[in-house]
Structure formats: structure tokens, C-alpha cells
């Protein structure tokens, strides 16, 4: 039953992903790849779309995956699933636990989670880089190195450094996405 599966999976994502935005990507990636709902490439495409459209990335991902697997009803159920846990948690906190952040136990628990999320994001980025640019996602894979990809990655780093030196400002994610779209068209069509 795809509807129930979508709802429950995104309910899990909503309940256990901390850190918002990119912090949620490691769990979304794990679940979506595990169920075979998206490939790594499709997921990266969707993150780019989510980054270029308004709204939280997790909600955008839920809507897209839900729609691709179960049509309109799937989109509604997945989106509802990802939102419900935080909705109830916040409701309880707002209504009952005024000093939620001041409890020592809560602080200690969150103090452990915060660095964990940093580790998760970095690890996710590294494994994504390995699978997209080097074509390596696990032992036994034959490598399919994508040199164009590695060059684009290097160019993006360079652009970032130059922008920081010249304008004292990092380019926005949307600008970076547009630049890399141009680079992609140029390099892969050669």
C-alpha cells in the first residue's frame, strides 16, 4: 500500500530529522534511496528545485516524492506526514512546556544532537560526492569517474573564493545553481 508507506516514511522523517533544511537531507536521502523512490541523481535534481522554489526543502521533497509515487493523494499524504510530528511537538511545547529550552536534560540531549547533525551533513555531502563524481557508492563498484563533474566542482569552489575576495560576499545558492546549469550544458555537450 504505497499511500500508507509514503505517509509513514515521511512521518518518520518529520519526527527524527533535526537541524532544518540541509540537516534533514541525510534522513530523507536514506529513506528515499532505500525505498527506491528516487535515484541519487533524481534526488539532487529535486534538492536544486527545492532550493530554487519557496518553502522548506523537506516539505518540497515530500510533495515531489509523494506525487511521483502516488499522484495527488500521495503528495498530500507525504506532505502531511512530514509536517505532522513537528506540528504536534510544537503544539505541546507552546501549550504546556513554557520553559522547554531551560531544562538541563533537554539541553544535554540537544547538545549531543547538534554536533551529530553537523557530522551527518558532512558525511552525506562526502558520500554524494563519491557517488556522483567518482561513481563510487560501495565496495565492489567499478569506478565511473565523471571528470566533467569534478571540474565543475572545482570551478564552483573557485567562483566562491573569488566572490568572497572581490565582493566580500558569497554568491546565493540560486546563482550558484544557475552558473552550474550553464557549466553543465557547456561541458557535457562537448
Amino acid at each position: 500500500m504505497i499511500y500508507l508507506e509514503l505517509f509513514l516514511t515521511f512521518l518518520q522523517i518529520g519526527a527524527f530529522s533535526f537541524g532544518g533544511g540541509y540537516g534533514m537531507i541525510s534522513l530523507i536521502r536514506e529513506k528515499v534511496l532505500m525505498h527506491g523512490w528516487l535515484t541519487e541523481e533524481e534526488m539532487l535534481n529535486m534538492i536544486a528545485v527545492a532550493e530554487s522554489t519557496p518553502g522548506p526543502i523537506a516539505v518540497n521533497m515530500a510533495t515531489f516524492v509523494g506525487s511521483s509515487q502516488g499522484g495527488f493523494l500521495g503528495a498530500i499524504l507525504a506532505t502531511l506526514g512530514v509536517v505532522l510530528p513537528s506540528f504536534f511537538i510544537i503544539l505541546i511545547i507552546a501549550a504546556l512546556i513554557r520553559n522547554f529550552m531551560k531544562y538541563a536534560g533537554v539541553k544535554a540531549f540537544l547538545g549531543g544532537i547538534r554536533p551529530c547533525v553537523v557530522g551527518l551533513i558532512l558525511a552525506t555531502a562526502i558520500t554524494m560526492f563519491m557517488s556522483t563524481a567518482i561513481g563510487f557508492s560501495g565496495i565492489g563498484d567499478t569506478l565511473a569517474t565523471d571528470f566533467n563533474g569534478i571540474i565543475i566542482f572545482a570551478i564552483l569552489i573557485l567562483i566562491n573564493i573569488v566572490a568572497k575576495l572581490a565582493f566580500k560576499k558569497k554568491p546565493t545558492p540560486i546563482l550558484m545553481i544557475l552558473i552550474s546549469a550553464g557549466l553543465g550544458m557547456l561541458m557535457y555537450s562537448l
Binding site: E41, L44, A48, M128, L156, M176, G184, Y188
Partner: peptide, 8 residues
């Protein structure tokens, strides 16, 4: 190209 950018 965009996929690489997202990883970045």
C-alpha cells in the same frame, strides 16, 4: 551540472 552544485 546542477547535481554537482547541490553536492557543493
Amino acid at each position: 551540472g546542477i547535481q554537482i552544485c547541490v553536492v557543493y
